[in-house]
């Protein structure tokens, strides 16, 4: 055994880590730049009237739309084999910030109107349509440590105040993000401003805390309740109607591929798109 067995090994480990990091980097650049050869450079005008869309379509979509938009992406790609759809899912606020900083995209689908308004104020989007609505529900862990349930013998939907108390451990989104703005409104309406114990950065992290049973309850979207299936309990409550997030979608002014962008927006607004949204728990626009 050499006097310092760890020395060379440590060097080898570092080299390995470097190689892995490098491979990741190369992989990313490779992926980010790909476009079908020979079609990406075409001007939209050259194939106007042609039913087949080509090139790359980049969609920035709220994280809560992941399941539905992935389904719609497949649909559009099957109908247009020459088209490559790429969707960037993240919190709406983060996406709006990226777009305001000049991130190239064709379509923006936001989880609330405030983020879309931000882009409209900057002149990045001129026209948007509300395509879905997503009210909040109270998510509760399966083992329900605080025994949360609607009061017996009362008809109709319970108030949030009938379900939770300020003493319980409750997770909500931070007021800076769409689900948190809605949560703040319903909590205020129910007189439960002090109930939250954590203001999370996005709704999925609230859901995670409920699924792990680390909080007694959390405010999440109906679509998240659908996504979680039978891993959690969920209750509707009266105040949720006061702050129903509307999801607007719009084509960016500087969209590199406006024809495909329009086609995607039309698909979302179409009956097929609305059915997919309804299946995921979203409510139709008013």
């Amino acid at each position: 055994m050499s006097p310092r067995p760890g020395g060379p090994r440590a060097v080898r480990l570092l080299t390995l880590a470097g190689l892995v990091a490098l491979a990741g980097l190369v992989g990313c650049t490779g992926e980010g730049r790909d476009a079908p050869p020979g079609v990406a450079e075409e001007e939209p005008g050259e194939w106007a009237g042609d039913p087949g869309l080509t090139g790359t379509l980049t969609v920035f979509a709220a994280a809560s739309l992941t399941d539905v938009f992935t389904e719609l992406e497949t649909r559009l790609e099957v109908a247009n084999p020459q088209l490559e759809v790429r969707i960037n899912y993240a919190g709406s606020s983060a996406l709006a910030a990226q777009l305001a900083q000049g991130a190239p995209a064709d379509v923006f689908a936001s989880a609330d109107e405030a983020q879309m308004a931000r882009l409209e104020d900057d002149g990045l989007v001129t026209d948007s349509d509300v395509f879905a609505r997503n009210p909040l529900m109270l998510a509760v862990p399966l083992d329900n440590p605080e025994g949360i349930m609607p009061p017996e013998g009362r008809a109709g939907i319970p108030s949030l105040a009938d379900l939770i108390t300020a003493e319980m451990t409750v997770a909500v989104c931070a007021p800076e993000v769409p689900c948190g703005a809605a949560a703040a409104e319903v909590l205020a309406a129910a007189g439960l401003r002090d109930a939250p114990d954590t203001y999370d950065d996005d709704v999925r992290s609230v859901l995670t805390k409920v699924q792990l049973g680390e909080v007694d309850a959390g405010l999440v979207y109906v679509s998240d309740v659908h996504a979680a299936g039978d891993e959690i309990l969920a209750y509707a409550f009266e105040e949720s109607s006061r702050a129903v997030n509307s999801y607007p979608i719009g084509v960016l002014e500087d969209a590199p591929n406006p024809a495909a962008a329009r086609a995607f927006v039309d698909l979302v607004l179409s009956e097929a798109g609305q059915q997919a949204l309804a299946a995921a728990g979203f409510q139709p626009p008013p």
Binding site: A97, D197, T198
Partner: peptide
Amino acid sequence: TITFAGNFPGTTQTMPLAVYLALQR
């Protein structure tokens, strides 16, 4: 931190959490 400790002003909201949330708005 934001996962395990959550984000609550005064008890668990550290500067990086405050920065990230400020960035949203």
